[in-house]
Design a protein around this nucleic acid. Structure first.
Lengths: 134, 134
DNA sequence: CGGCATCCAACCGGATACTG
DNA sequence: CAGTATCCGGTTGGATGCCG
């Protein structure tokens, strides 16, 4: 039974991420992609961040990739970009309502994975011990 | 300088996906990656699938990528692989308990995104209309 | 500060061929 | 059927330089 608004079984929704041509697949990739997930996560924990604040929070992201990532998320309506014409320029990024809902689910996943990493690492050791020695 | 990864607000978990070197980042990428997310999703909806069944369900995945993806998920302890020494060979894949918990959160995210694609597409049109005409 | 343009290396990933 | 191995083209993504 469903505790939330989305169904757990097959659906007659017009969008299906398992279909190659479905636009939802692209959006899912923006959301779950290497940098997209971290950008949404960081913005969710902070409400609003400037470009370089965001960059510092996401260890390892390049300027180019962060810029690209934010554009994709903005275009999909998940992130709002607010530029102030001051000098030096100041640009703030924050989640939209839709973005916040997506980010909440993402954060749940991220925290769950972080919380189970010991299990994952143990599984890896067992896997490598049995199969890895080649 | 050392990249001291302070967690902004969350608990003092030893793993922090925002840190470049944290192993949780790799696992998150396996889980949310282009094919990892769809493999977990498909297995969650079906319980158990053979290699080519899985391949057919995930429109567009190549044999190589699916194989690679399944290995990574198996190594992380999210997917269980069961090979039967019959002829022709039969190999079943299914989620582990941990994998099922991960998949549930992922599915929630996927269905949410699918359910909001109209909003996303509308946002894209607005974005392209204001900036895109160049 | 907050970007975009360009160059270029790395690797991702598809097609193909082959094996058990 | 369930893969592995190899090739190789396209994309990703880092480094650098420049601009408002």
């Amino acid at each position: 039974m469903d505790t939330t608004q989305e169904r757990s079984e097959a659906q007659d929704l017009p969008y299906n991420v398992f279909a190659k041509a479905c636009p939802s697949r692209g959006t899912l990739e923006h959301v779950t992609g290497r940098w997209g997930a971290l950008a949404l996560g960081a913005l969710h924990e902070h409400g609003s961040l400037r470009f370089n604040e965001l960059r510092r929070r996401i260890d390892g992201v390049s300027e180019k990739m962060l810029s690209q990532t934010l554009h994709a998320l903005e275009r999909d309506g998940l992130v709002h970009r607010e530029a102030q014409p001051t000098n030096p320029p100041r640009v703030d990024y924050e989640l939209t309502t839709l973005g916040r809902e997506v980010a909440e689910r993402l954060i749940g996943l991220i925290h769950f994975v972080e919380g189970r990493m010991d299990d994952v690492l143990t599984a890896r050791e067992r896997y490598d011990a049995t199969r890895g020695a080649r």
